[in-house]
Design a protein around this nucleic acid. Structure first.
Length: 591
DNA sequence: GTAGGGTTAG
């Protein structure tokens, strides 16, 4: 007699209990399998489904032999049903095999089995992890036609999917239509914005969540902290820190890393280190965040020291760690150390350098003035086919060391590859301006206008009493505009008396007419620093966040401003931190 | 049995 396949395993049978006892270890599971066969349950679909799920979730699920065993087991199961396929899809989506999840889903469809809300949550997650936007959209249409578009789990998975594929418009549309949003749904939307660089929108959703009275959990706070890191929003970041302390939330390694990153990127390096020291568990990501923090602040030796300590603690650096430590070497001028570390990447860890690593090395050699070595490195490492990122770093080095002929050569190469990137034109124009070739500057300006290429608009942000004030070049929108401009004018006169001579070459690359008018004097960071000096007490630090790099003139002016005002000023620009104190900058004018 | 989180270059 053939035993009828049942839908669910009987929860109290000895066989089922043996399965649970075996857990997620393959050998014991195989032994239970033998018992199932001996007991004549080998055609009982429920036991076999549970067994197969456990195998797929087992610690050695990635090994070939386990996969082969799982396949044989699958083929032995009579009349696969929806439940079996859901188990397969979920296991694959959850344990890092999203492509398998999609294959199972397709097989399921081919077998004419009805998908359920469980099927869709997992297969949508798989599409998200693969960034498979085409497949995901097809699945979405099936979600609708099968009537699961009002299931909050499916909806949340879809919000994640559209977020991961960068389609925030669709993500938001779906999110807005969820009637009873769970914390996870809110988190998905916040993370979606944050991961796509839309930190302000992420914060705005969090505020809506507060208004809706939904209590954030640690995942919410992690995404919120990342948004703070992007924005340089220190006071909100500190609020998050206070919040999680007051709520008694456990500082796990993920939350701790988000805090480290927030403090480091908001200019509070010591606080970042304190959090790091207090962590119970430290994994590669946490170490990397701390190393990266030191690098951004120009503390190359500290970064290397931490890198060594990490290795001594038994952890292996990953490719991101190498980017962080190489970048730290570049910013601190630690050339031979950086070269050694770059070599060890391949030799000791079998990691293949990616474009990011090449950029760090070119930047490192280039900043140090070793332009020939940098060119040689590019030729050897990229086999003569450097990507635009590597060439951009090289061009930056040419500008820094005023090597015009090489700069033009590199720029021509770069513009041939990426003719639509305005940043390249601005950089080349800067080089010509420094060389006094105003005819070429004018030419580039015309090309940009002709091709409708706009340079990115710079802004600087300063927080006073937990309120953010944003300034653009020549900004007149602020309430205190008159006072700020007057103060700035007096300040500039004062630093001139102290020896400041404006670096006018930096003004020549201004491309828009109205920008030219204000020239250097009203660059956004100068407005921000004037506003900051006016509105803060004598001994407090001034922190400014800028979205672009500081120009030479502002950098010079800030040195003098820190001297004449006796104030410490910390500026985060696009790439790193500058600590101005008593007339000197932590970057030693090397940035 | 279902959904969400941290680190990277110029």
């Amino acid at each position: 007699m053939i035993r009828r396949a049942t839908a669910h395993p009987c929860p109290h049978s000895p066989t089922y209990e043996a399965l649970l006892r075996a857990g997620r270890r393959v050998r014991p599971l195989q032994q239970v399998h033998a018992r199932i066969v001996v007991a004549g349950h080998h055609r009982t679909r429920s036991f076999l489904t549970k067994l197969l799920t456990l195998i797929l979730c087992s610690s050695s699920s990635a090994s070939c032999s386990t996969a082969a065993y799982a396949r044989t087991l699958f083929l032995s199961i009579p009349e696969p049903d929806t439940f079996l396929f859901n188990s397969l899809i979920t296991a694959a989506a959850k344990y890092g095999r999203p492509a398998d999840a999609i294959v199972h889903y397709r097989r399921m469809s081919a077998a004419c089995l009805e998908p359920s809300n469980y099927t869709f949550t997992s297969v949508v997650k798989a599409c998200a992890d693969l960034s498979a936007s085409q497949t995901g959209r097809v699945v979405h249409s099936r979600v609708i036609s099968n009537g699961f578009d009002s299931d909050v789990f499916v909806q949340t998975a879809l919000v994640v999917f559209y977020g991961k594929t960068g389609d925030l418009h669709h993500a938001r549309k779906l999110f807005d239509r969820i009637p009873n949003r769970t914390v996870v749904a809110w988190n998905a939307m916040i993370a979606g914005y944050e991961q796509n660089g839309l930190a302000e929108e992420a914060v705005a959703i969090f505020q809506l969540m507060q208004v809706a009275g939904k209590e954030p959990d640690s995942a919410t706070l992690v995404s919120l902290l990342s948004a703070c890191s992007q924005l340089g929003a220190l006071s909100l970041g500190q609020w998050v820190n206070d919040y999680l302390v007051n709520k008694g939330l456990e500082l796990n390694v993920v939350l701790g890393t988000a805090l480290i990153n927030m403090y480091a990127r908001c200019g509070h390096l010591e606080k970042a280190r304190k959090i790091f020291n207090g962590l119970q568990e430290r994994n590669v990501v946490a170490w990397t965040a701390m190393i990266s923090g030191y690098g951004m602040h120009g503390h190359g030796h500290q970064a290397i020291k931490l890198f060594q300590q990490m290795k001594s603690s038994g952890l292996s650096p990953n490719d991101v760690t190498f980017v962080a430590v190489l970048s730290a070497c570049a910013h601190a001028g630690l050339v031979s150390e950086g070269q050694e570390i770059f070599a060890s990447m391949r030799q000791d860890y079998g990691l293949v350098p990616r474009v990011e690593h090449q950029v760090c090395v070119v930047d490192m050699l280039g900043r140090a003035g070793l332009l020939d070595e940098a060119m040689l490195f590019i030729r050897e490492e990229t086999r003569g086919l450097p990507g635009p990122e590597v060439l951009t770093a090289m061009l930056g080095a040419c500008k820094m060391h005023k090597n015009f002929s090489l700069g033009v050569e590199v720029a021509e190469h770069l513009l041939a590859i990426e003719p639509g990137n305005p940043a390249h034109y601005v950089l080349l124009s800067n080089i010509f301006a420094l060389a006094g070739r105003m005819d070429r500057v004018e030419k580039i300006r015309n090309v940009m206008i002709h091709r409708h290429l706009k340079k990115q608009i710079g802004y600087s942000l300063i927080e006073i009493n937990q309120a953010a004030h944003v300034f653009r070049m020549g900004d007149t929108s602020h309430q205190q505009t008159m006072e700020i401009y007057k103060y700035l004018e007096e300040l500039i006169n004062k630093i001139k008396e102290a020896g400041y001579v404006p670096e006018t070459s930096a003004a020549l690359h201004e491309l828009e007419e109205e920008e030219r008018e204000f020239a250097l004097r009203f660059h956004s960071e100068k407005l921000a620093v004037a506003f900051g000096l006016m509105n803060t007490s004598k001994n407090s630090l001034i922190r400014i966040v800028k979205n672009l790099r500081m120009c030479n003139d502002c950098h010079l002016a800030f040195n003098f401003i820190s001297l004449v005002s006796g104030r410490e000023i910390i500026v985060r620009d696009k790439h790193r931190f500058h600590h101005f104190k008593q007339g000197l900058c932590s970057c030693q004018n090397y940035w």
